[in-house]
Amino acid sequence: MKKFKKPPPYYLPAPSRWPISGAVGLFLLLLGIMNIIHGNWYGHYFFMGGALLLCFVMFGWFSAVINESLLGLHSHKMTMTYRLGMLWFIVSEVAFFGIFFGALFYTRLFAVPTLGGLMGSAETHAILWPTFKAAWPLLKNPNPQLFMGPKAVMPALGLPAVNTVILMTSAVFITIAHWHLQKKQARQTHFFLFLTILFGILFLGCQGYEYHEAYTKMHLTLESGIYGTTFFMLTGFHAAHVTVGALMLLVILIRSLKGHFLPEHHFAFSAVSWYWHFVDVVWLFLFIFVYWL
């Protein structure tokens, strides 16, 4: 592959077909989801078309950027842009999770106590559901006919604690992989990257098992009132992010096997490792506030 001796100060890409295709893909995907919800027969076609198009775009667009990187078109300044982009993308993700935590805290501190007559005006409690008792985790909802509560609470010590250890260990592994990358030890890098992915998948497996237990044995579902709602939405979005993170790690492993990364030039590796640490930290908060306290 031809390599430029010195990269241009800042590489400006030529007009590209990927963005507009990505916009169409996103449009079809969301349109598909909403039509599936509405039970329209064409929803699945839109969804599949959009998803395939988006996968194609991601593959093509990332390949184009990787090729530019391999051609040596990415100057230090260019790399800085990518780093800033990833950093602030993660900040926006923090805000996304933040609002779900905000909903959890508001529910626990204000909504449930008010319904139980423990704060604010007692009328809310007296008029709406006078027999309702505030508690957390909430097993008996204000209106059990509409929202039947769960039979049991997901214990923190047990599978969630094991999962915490698994995810934290995988965070250690990716850091070790990073050290080896910086020391140009390719085999160790690959090994620890592989272990990171393995532990990520293990985590997802445990999470899946936990969900299965919750649905089949504990009657803890999305529909079982605010406890089930916050539990599944928070852990569910986290699990979705772990899945995306694991896919990103897989791409990084493949690229690492192809020898794409140099000790001084490996933005993609750093970006994925930041992302992985981000999902770790979110998990710590989940473990504390959703499972434990």
């Binding site: 529910t107 909504a111 909802n141 204000p142 509409l146 929202f147 529909e223 709602t229 599944f232 939405m233």
Partner: peptide, 13 residues
């Protein structure tokens, strides 16, 4: 999907 973030009957608000 049956969640109750904004529904007091399920403990939301």
């Amino acid at each position: 999907f049956g969640t109750s973030f904004f529904n007091a009957a399920g403990g939301g608000d």
